[in-house]
């Protein structure tokens, strides 16, 4: 009888300990908040990538850019995006927004049927701050205004201003360079959605 009692007591104790351990594992560890200066550096890096894309798009669209140069810039621009990213394209007077894979969009941009093309991005800013997701990545949204000016062979000018929202993914990664570990923030752009189109 005494032995049975001891076994029962020990079993309860064991289960309690097991429960405590499981509870301990489930409790999420409090991560210290990121220093504001570090967060600002990452925010700024993401904005810089969007600025870079604006320059790439402008160069790809520019009729003065040679085919080989445009092809090289397209490759560089693609490096800024996640694999399956898409971009929305709108036209004045049409409510439909067509979505293209980034590569296809950039190639079309290079071959637009205009004599000259000028694309400018302005008012580039966050509309949704980078927030940490459960998977550890940071996600935010940057909005931009794109001013498009196209002049046809017969002198017709098409102008529009489009407001676009770009999803930003930021992830901390490491790599080996020169035998040492380097920690870097991989900023990738996701889908670019059209939120508004108006006359330029």
């Amino acid at each position: 009888m005494t032995n049975m009692k001891s076994i029962k007591t020990l079993s309860i104790l064991f289960l309690c300990l097991l429960g405590l351990q499981v509870f301990g594992q489930d409790t999420p560890k409090e991560e210290p908040p990121m220093p504001p200066a570090r967060k600002a550096a990452i925010d700024s890096l993401a904005l810089e990538k969007v600025h870079d894309l604006s320059k790439y798009i402008s160069k790809i669209g520019d009729k003065e850019t040679s085919f080989s140069e445009a092809s090289r810039v397209i490759e560089r621009a693609l490096e800024l995006f996640v694999d399956d990213a898409q971009i929305g394209v709108s036209t004045l007077g049409k409510s439909q927004i067509r979505y293209f894979a980034i590569k296809k969009y950039l190639e079309r941009l290079n071959k637009l049927n205009y004599k000259s093309v000028n694309i400018e991005w302005f008012d580039i800013q966050y509309i949704s701050d980078l927030e940490k997701q459960p998977d550890g990545k940071y996600v935010g949204v940057i909005t931009i205004y794109q001013k498009f000016t196209g002049v046809t062979e017969d002198g017709m000018v098409y102008k529009d201003i489009t407001k676009k929202d770009i999803t930003i993914y930021v992830e901390r990664k490491t790599t080996q360079i020169g035998g040492r570990e380097i920690g870097f923030w991989d900023v990738l752009l996701g889908d670019i959605k059209v939120s508004e189109t108006k006359k330029g």
């Binding site: 550096a41 990452i42 890096l45 810039v73 560089r76 923030w185």
Partner: peptide, 30 residues
């Protein structure tokens, strides 16, 4: 390597690139 943050303990870089890509980027983004 482009260092974006360094507080003495933590050093953060941008995604590593190469000399040729970096120099071309300067040309592209002006």
């Amino acid at each position: 390597l482009i260092e974006i943050y360094n507080d003495g303990d933590i050093v953060d870089y941008d995604r590593p690139t190469t000399a040729v890509k970096y120099l071309n980027k300067l040309k592209d983004v002006q």
